[in-house]
Design a protein around this nucleic acid. Structure first.
Length: 977
DNA sequence: GGATACAATTA
DNA sequence: CTAATTGTATCCA
């Protein structure tokens, strides 16, 4: 190696894990071999090497190697035997990919390096040092912070997934310290993934600040006693040794005795046919094609290589028979001929991922002719991505600032409508910016596009855009929603990261692209501006990018619906519900301010009285709302026996614990429970709800999230109208404030025991089926089966226990949970469960087979084919696994019920309309629908609503158990329910 | 101001 | 023991 040479070092092991989690899971079409990470790896290597051969741009490596960890045990374990002890075994579908990635490296004719006893990072550090000494430059292909300590004048890093170079400045930007201080920073923060201890309570921000102040770790530890913050000071002093140990653990060794010298890493000419053989074996069609083009090899004449792989499973995809793609699922430019849907979806996703973003190419549309051209092109093509920009996240309040369109990847525009400039605080002082089409003219043109049934509008969370455009008098027909497509294909796969199905995480996962952050355009906090204040050129970059991303996501994801056999879930349970829910949100519900205000006063007074009693009993005043202070009083000063502890080691003051104390004769805990209940009712409901009354409609418009839960349920927020109190008489009063307009009534229609009925159907339990067919009290029946007590004259306590068990079954019962619920010993709860399974062995069979299915496939299905993914069900951690098993048992039951009410909601409008009823569906509360309609139509509507709901599973599923719906009309929600 | 913990509410 | 959202307290930047 000599001056001017450039060494590329790929951190192979880190890449594998990152690619596995970040990229959509791919499988080889012929046998289901998982190859997602391999695919990402090959695409990355190809990109790096292709750039390498293009001397016009980028850096040209002369030396190249991929480095892997050899085994998990290294010299660091001798320093600290807990090192990396938190690492769980790699997922089953990643294991075969380790070998494949090494094969891929060889197919690319690149050095593949691993050495026993050392981590890839140490080998990388050593090569870096050698290259530097020889006068060459190095680029480390990784984004691992552990490697950032190597960055310097001749060493850079490159994050292949974010296409981002990391130099000295980037390290400082990200961590607030220069690379040479990264070791000290990591020593302080530790690393929970690698189980490096660090100092508790110190995160990257604090660490950077401390190092800035003290210079380095040793100085810091020596002067730790001068630190002001108490906790921080104590932790630094107490854990100083851990910090020193951590420093040793995170310091990379650059003196590894290398098996392969630096000069052996020279980059050879690519062997096209060899690489193509491998890619063909993996069935990477689009990369094969590109490599063939580049190397001028004849791909057709090259046979797929034999690639050794340890993989026993050979399962095909589970396509629902007879459920083909519908007409509008035939995608533009489709080259699916001769390909399986799976292979097509894969190659499409890979194709889309490779198209670069260029914000400069987006157009701003400032005259009507230009807009008409865009709309004509969209209608010509038959599909267009559409996104509105507004000044509010609330679609019922939002003012339209502009909209964007995208017709093909990279080709997108923004149409500003009412951007303003100048001071806004004085009336009329701001003025409309130049270069905007008059709003009415632009909207009239847009109407032709949105109302055109022959042109598919593609949105991300299109319910929002639908509500906004509806308020401007524009109907939106024929649409797709990328958020819902994502929800159908990977509910639960993506839990954790924000939103899961929001634009940012989707763009990251499917396109490897980070959109312009909203904060960068509009600022945040106090200095935030509304979108109409954003300069138009800046707005175009942001808004057109959103439409561009939406279009790309649609292109990349939609074929997956077919590939995974879930088209009907999307087309029958998700998409048609969008306009239904939009209408419900738009309708809103009427709330009586006066009732709430009166209740607020009552609750406030009662709470104040109880507060005084509490201080009296406690002998001092304190903040009752602080669990910490309350715990100190109850279990410290007053010396009451503590029950359980919370996960942070505090004494629990949950209602459960307090009620147990009350039962032992202590008067104070009871009052605490009462106080909490009243303050909850006041703050969350009677005080907060009036604030949600819309200034113009005078009604409350909740927002339903269609892609928020793993099971298929909706959720409601701002305000949440799915948790309005009902259990206690005090809470119930709040429901009287939900009223019908004068002359109208509310109808509440709810499914009776729908989840138990679904369980009886799915698990096929004869006694349960019979009981539901006969209309018997199901909990009493369970009690009599289990305890041999006749239903007649059964003590209520016996029935209560049976009821808790029935619920427990639906929740994937555990002795711990049941014991907690019933305040009994775990052993006794275990006995109950045992006895239950003896009487209903079919339930145990259902649970076992559901668990087995989930473990094998990674997901479970509802009666209607909706999937809920539980990737952690294979966790080696017992409690994580058990939790996922319970969730997997519950999901088909809860999810099937959710699917049934969705079907009812989708059909409801048409049925009511046909019957000439002016009923409006207002709310959904999981198993209940609320309608508002003229008083004199209630008698006609009730049986119709019941019929639609009771038959909602038909004809897709013919339930072995009848569904029963109870419905009543009244002037408020309390009486209707 | 943002993140986290805990407790409340619902089906 | 399943699935959610919201409000208050608390800690830290």
């Amino acid at each position: 190696m000599k001056k001017g040479d450039h060494l590329f070092l790929v951190d192979g092991s880190a890449y594998i894990f990152r690619a596995y989690h970040a990229l959509p899971p791919l499988t080889r079409k012929s046998d289901g071999l998982p190859i997602g990470a391999v695919s990402g790896f090959c695409n990355m290597l190809w990109k790096l090497l292709r750039n390498a051969r293009d001397t016009e741009m980028g850096i040209t490596p002369t030396h190249f190697a991929v480095i892997f960890d050899y085994s998990s045990k290294t010299f660091r374990n001798d320093l600290y035997d807990e090192y990396k002890a938190n690492r769980s075994a790699p997922p089953d579908d990643l294991v075969p990919q380790f070998g494949l990635i090494r094969e891929a490296t060889r197919a690319f004719d690149v050095a593949c390096i691993e050495q026993e006893g050392f981590e890839a990072d140490d080998i990388i550090a050593t090569y870096c040092r050698l290259a530097c000494e020889a006068g060459g430059d190095t680029t480390v292909i990784s984004s691992d912070k552990d490697l950032m300590q190597l960055v310097g004048p001749t060493v850079g890093m490159y994050d292949p997934m974010k296409d981002k170079e990391i130099g000295v400045d980037e390290v400082i930007e990200k961590f607030g310290v220069p690379p040479e201080k990264m070791i000290d920073l990591q020593a302080l923060t530790g690393d929970s993934i690698d189980n490096v201890p660090g100092v508790p309570g110190i995160g990257p921000k604090t660490a950077a600040q401390l190092l800035e102040e003290f210079g380095d770790l040793d100085t810091l530890l020596a002067k730790a006693d001068t630190i002001k913050q108490k906790k921080r000071r104590e932790n630094l002093i107490e854990h100083a040794d851990n910090a020193r140990l951590s420093r040793e653990l995170v310091t990379l060794r650059d003196d590894v005795d290398l098996e392969l010298p630096l000069d052996a890493l020279t980059l050879d000419e690519l062997d096209g046919p060899k690489l193509i053989g491998f890619l063909k074996a993996m069935q990477f069609t689009s990369l094969t094609r590109r490599v063939a083009e580049q190397t001028e090899a004849d791909a057709a004449s090259i046979e797929a290589a034999e690639v050794p792989v340890e993989w026993e499973e050979a399962r095909g995809p589970d396509l629902d028979p007879g459920e083909g793609p519908s007409k509008d699922d035939v995608l533009p430019g489709s080259s699916a001929d001769g390909m399986t849907p799976q292979a097509f979806a894969e190659s499409r996703a890979a194709e889309i991922r490779d198209i670069a973003f260029d914000h400069e190419k987006y157009e701003t549309v400032g005259n009507i002719q230009h807009l008409r051209e865009w709309i004509a092109e969209a209608r010509e093509r038959g599909h267009v991505a559409f996104d509105t920009e507004t000044d509010s996240l609330d679609p019922m309040q939002a003012t339209l600032c502009g909209f964007s369109l995208a017709v093909e990847p990279g080709r997108a525009c923004y149409v500003p409508l009412c951007h303003r400039e100048g001071e806004g605080d004085l009336l009329g002082a701001s003025s409309l910016s130049d270069g905007q089409i008059p709003e009415k003219e632009a909207l009239d043109a847009l109407r032709d596009l949105l109302a055109d049934p022959a042109c598919l509008k593609i949105g991300q969370n299109i319910k929002f855009d639908m509500l906004v455009t509806a308020r401007y008098g524009l109907p939106l027909v024929n649409f797709d929603d990328t958020m819902l497509i994502s929800y159908v294909i990977e509910a639960g796969r993506t839990a954790g990261n924000q939103g899961g199905h929001g634009m940012d995480p989707l763009a990251d996962r499917w396109l490897g692209h980070k959109p312009i952050p909203y904060k960068e355009v509009c600022g945040s906090g106090k200095s935030a501006i509304t979108f109409d204040r954003v300069p138009i050129d800046k707005a175009t970059h942001y808004a057109a990018e959103d439409a561009d991303i939406t279009l790309r996501l649609w292109l990349a994801m939609k074929p997956r619906l077919v590939a995974e056999g879930v088209v009907s879930v999307y087309e029958r349970l998700e998409r048609p519900l969008v306009p239904v829910i939009a209408k419900m949100e738009e309708a809103g519900v009427s709330i009586d301010r006066q009732i709430l205000s009166r209740l607020s006063g009552e609750f406030g007074q009662q709470a104040a009285g109880i507060e005084a009693e509490i201080y009296e009993m406690a002998g001092e005043s304190f903040n009752i709302g602080s669990p910490k202070q309350l715990g100190d009083i109850l279990f410290g000063r007053m010396g009451l026996p503590g029950g359980s502890k919370t996960k942070t080691g505090q004494w629990s003051t949950s209602a459960r614990v307090l009620e147990d104390l009350a039962a032992e004769g202590h008067p104070l805990p009871r009052r605490i429970v009462d106080w909490r209940q009243l303050t909850k009712l006041k703050s969350t409901y009677t005080d907060a709800l009036p604030g949600y009354i819309h200034p113009e409609t005078r009604r409350v418009h909740t927002s339903y999230q269609m892609a928020a839960t793993t099971t298929g349920r909706l959720s409601s927020s701002e305000p949440n109208l799915q948790n309005i109190p009902i259990r206690t008489s005090e809470g119930r009063k709040i429901r009287t404030a939900f009223i019908a307009e004068p002359g109208n009534v509310l109808i509440s229609a709810d499914y009776s025991q729908i989840e138990l009925r679904i369980l009886a159907h799915i698990a096929d339990i004869p006694q349960l089926r019979q009981a539901f067919a006969d209309g018997i009290d199901i909990h009493a029946m369970t009690a009599s089966e289990m305890f041999g007590v006749p239903v007649e004259g059964m003590p209520s306590e016996v029935r209560r226990r049976a009821k808790a068990i029935n619920f427990g079954i639906i929740y994937g019962i555990s002795a711990f949970g049941l014991a907690n619920q019933l305040s009994i010993e775990r052993g006794e709860a275990g006995e109950y469960i045992k006895r239950y399974f003896e009487r209903f062995p079919g339930i145990r069979d259902y649970m076992d087979s559901t668990k087995a299915f989930a473990r094998e496939h990674g997901y479970v299905e509802t009666l209607f084919g909706r999937r809920a993914y539980y990737p952690d069900i294979r966790s080696s951690n017992h409690s994580v696994r058990a939790f996922n098993e319970r969730a997997a048992i519950n999901a088909p039951i809860q999810g099937s019920a959710a699917d049934i009410i969705r079907r009812a909601m989708i059909r409801m409008d048409g049925v009511l309309e046909e019957a000439k009823l002016d009923a409006k569906m207002l709310l959904q509360v999981h198993d209940e629908l609320i309608f508002e309609l003229p008083k004199d139509q209630a008698d006609a509507a009730i049986p119709l609503i019941q019929e639609v709901m009771e038959n909602a599973a038909m004809p897709a599923v013919d339930m072995a158990v009848p569904l029963q719906v109870d419905a009543q009309a009244a002037s408020n929600w309390d009486e209707a329910h």
